[in-house]
Amino acid sequence: MIEIENVTFHHGKSPILKDVSLTIKRGGITALIGPNGAGKSTLFALMARLLPLQSGKISFDAMDIRQTPSRELAKKLAILRQDTHVASRITVQDMVGFGRFPHHQGRATSLDHDKVQAALNVFDLADIAERFIDELSGGQRQRVLVAMAYAQDTEYLLLDEPLNNLDMHFARNLMHQLRDLADNHGKTIVVVLHEINYAAAHADTIIALKNGEVAAHSRTDEFMTEEAISRIYDMSVKVKAVDGLKMALHHV
């Protein structure tokens, strides 16, 4: 269970998150949505201890992120950031291999190699495993970073816009993969999505942030109403049921 209690965060004087409290239960996929600048990535950075908490408290299964050693947390949660740039010249295989670092501290075992190989296969990277990541396309690089978080094999997975740059084939694949992780491996996944229909199709729960505040937190089918979506994104959107699934027609 992820518990976020009264988290407030300021950049300089401007408030970014205002007294955010959330409880995310174990298991399943939670989609975090909201307009640009709502504070989604900031909340993720706080949860992953990449930014220091200014006030409030965050814990994973009662492990307070301020008290737990970083190394323990690295085995508890993995994060994919919205924009990761990798400075060094590293091959795809080695980069995914870094996901195993929290488990082996630099001395990889055959178990680690197997897990890396599995991650490469799952995200269709085996063919380009020897390539350098600065020579990949945007979508390929995104898949490498997702595979790295996957290889970290943690109970909690925070993915900030993992569908960035992915074509529809890989985007749907990734969502299916997440579904499999949640349903068959007991993982808890929180994922920032901009395309609300991916959330509608694959998430169990939706949390909406707006202006640094929680604007909605409910089961996906309950959330998917014209009223809720229009209120959060300040635009009118039609919601239609297609094969029993509520879809937002926000493109036209």
Partner: peptide
């Protein structure tokens, strides 16, 4: 610390995510 430097080279955020005391 050569293995630690390998991770530090990925930058601050990756180093913390992978469990280093940055």
């Amino acid at each position: 610390k050569r293995n630690v430097w390998d991770v530090m080279a990925l930058g601050r955020e990756q180093a913390i995510s992978l469990g280093l005391n940055y």
